[in-house]
């Protein structure tokens, strides 16, 4: 899993469903691993495979026309449990960016901590992306983190996205939160001396 994200041009895999919850992204019965790797195989497991493990032909990940490092989902992506395994599964399946018109809070944090860039676009722009992919499954999207935009290459349509400056720096440079928190050791110990009954 690469820790640095800067710029990407790629086709995308569309899953135009709202409220994609983390149990769909990675069902609980596949959470038994004790490492971060290998979850990609079971990404969207029950949408992707029948109970006997044969691929479901109508699911987008089983259609070879669709590929790429960008996953595009409907509104309220990643709701449900706090399992970071959802973000690991997405990363392990080769995605670096997830686009939606709305993300659940914990998922967004988990994605960033997994060095996946969650891009929140307007409903309208999300529609345009889905339409562009419908017209051409190989439609390219360009993601520029430094300049904070996402572009549909064929039409030139572009939208800026928000990202918090701290997290942006982390992604651009491959830093993680623990590095930063460990550097605050003195302040943390100092804080601990100030509070007893009022926690």
């Amino acid at each position: 899993m690469s820790k640095i994200f800067q710029h990407l041009v790629s086709s995308a895999v569309p899953v135009p469903i709202e409220n994609i919850d983390t149990d769909q992204i990675i069902p609980a019965r596949f959470l038994k691993a004790t490492t971060r790797e290998g979850f990609g195989e079971n990404l969207f497991r029950d949408w992707r495979y029948e109970a006997d493990n044969t691929p479901k032909a109508d699911f987008v990940m089983n259609n070879p026309i669709y590929s790429g490092q960008i996953l595009v989902g409907g509104k309220n992506f990643g709701c449900g449990s706090s399992r970071e395994h959802a973000a690991w599964a997405i990363a392990d399946a080769g995605f670096k960016v997830v686009v939606s018109s709305f993300f659940a809070d914990i998922f967004k944090n988990n994605a960033l901590n997994t060095f996946i860039l969650p891009i929140q676009v307007s409903e309208d722009f999300l529609d345009r992306i889905f339409k562009a992919i419908e017209a051409d499954p190989k439609a390219q999207l360009e993601v520029d983190l430094e300049n904070q935009f996402i572009k549909i290459v064929s039409t030139g349509e572009k939208e800026n996205f928000d990202i918090n400056q701290y997290k942006k720096t982390c992604l651009l440079n491959g830093y993680d939160d623990i590095d930063y928190l460990l550097s605050l050791r003195k302040e943390i110990e100092q804080y601990e001396t100030t509070r007893t009954y009022n926690f």
Binding site: H85, I106, N110, D176, D177, L181
Partner: peptide, 18 residues
């Protein structure tokens, strides 16, 4: 509130969370 595993590691390492 609930947190992801990277955050569990943050808390184990520093008793703090970002």
């Amino acid at each position: 509130f609930g947190i992801g595993t990277s955050e569990v590691e943050q808390v184990l390492a520093t008793q703090c969370i970002l």
